[in-house]
Amino acid sequence: MRFRLTDDQRALRAGVRQVLARHFDGEALRAAAGDGGPGGGGVGGGGVGRTVRPAGPDRALWRALGDAGFFALRLPQSDGGVGLGLPEAVLVFEEAGRALLPGPLVATHLAAGVVPGAATGEAVVTAVHGGLVEWLAEADVVRGDATGAVPLRSLDPLTPLHRVPGAASAPDPVATLLTAAEQLGTAGRVCELAAQHARAREQFGRPIGAFQAVAHLCAGMLVRTETARAAVYGAAVTADPVDVAAARLLADEAAVRGARDCLQVHGGMGFTWESEVHLHLKRAWVRTQRAGEVTESEEVLAADLWPGAP
């Protein structure tokens, strides 16, 4: 059994992390999120959930991602792609999730080889899923029917959203899995942030991580992350829709609960705009909407127990 990263996969992960650090570090993240703008509310200011308008996915970054093979990763080499598989794609999207990279990454990746310019990062491609479209105004191409799309004031300052009328189409399992990989990246990152803070922040004369109540919160984050990791990586190997549904549920849980616990560990600072913690939580919430209703994934998993059941 070799259910672990190969040397090539480790190198790929390290390479992607490097590229992302170069093009989109913590400073770039905070700059993208802005300072909320003048008079931009906070609690009581009437502006909770402010409307910072990101300037669209950074085109230079998008092309750099294209050059790095981010979008063409799974295209066959004969079609100018990198020729890698789902496990590699999952590792790459995990890194994107860690870095909180903005933009319709999953949709553009899935458009590679279908929409001209997607593979190279020349085109920004978005897609309708879960009754929502991310980055509609900024994208060059939208896949799915976005007729009648109405902008909404997005809770995530780094993901502009439109609501699309009509019934949501069934989510593509690969899109669901890559989103789960992004959630896994967030889960790992917020666990690290919480542990860092718990080691550094002192109250009552010692690091708060020395208090069991705080330490156990952090340990719980790690347990959820590692369990989700096994589910996500496993689903990347099998590509089985039931495994994908399981990966989605566990990765959503690890990301959302992890980000909330990270916020809690950060105390008052966690509630500020300045801290990056809220950005992880808000993005995690956005991603939970991509793969359709949670209940649908649960029904897929229930039906697997009794294939003859409704």
Partner: peptide, 22 residues
Amino acid sequence: RRRLGRLNAEFRALWRLTQWNV
């Protein structure tokens, strides 16, 4: 039904975690 579905996700993940640890 969904509670059982969630448990299916849980034990599938635990089996993968076992394979990961092995």
